[in-house]
Amino acid sequence: MDLIIKQVTKIVFPFIVLYGFYIALHGHLTPGGGFAAGAIIGSAFALLVIAFDERDVEHKLTVHELIDLKSVAGFFMILIIGKMGYSMRSALIESQTLFSLWSGGFTIIMNLAGTFMVSSAIILIIYSLEKEAWKK
């Protein structure tokens, strides 16, 4: 990719990720939530992958490490969120007040977990597609 896109990506990238986390934390107050936030963070990485192809950038995580990380996280999320979400489902609904960040009870943890899962899934997809596409 050309120089302008590379430079702009370097500047914009942290802000996109930050915006993703903003969406995740305010998921119970404003439109959005875990999935939207994860998609935004994932798209930041997609931009990175498109702007700098594999010859320029060395990924810190390999695809296999990402798969392992994601499945470990997924396994524990089933156990923890499944169990806690069940026992705290009344707290999840009743303690919610409008326009206050620390209100939704358990929702915020669910949103962060969702963000983690979705963003790692999208990063995984984009990394592995890119790796396959460039492989000779």
């Binding site: 798969i67 392992d68 499945s71 470990v72 997924g74 396994f75 089933i78 499944g82």
Partner: peptide, 16 residues
């Protein structure tokens, strides 16, 4: 369903 899903993740974690 949770048991089968846990099996999916466990198989994925178990390395080659």
């Amino acid at each position: 369903v949770p048991v089968l899903l846990a099996a999916v993740f466990l198989i994925t974690i178990t390395s080659g």
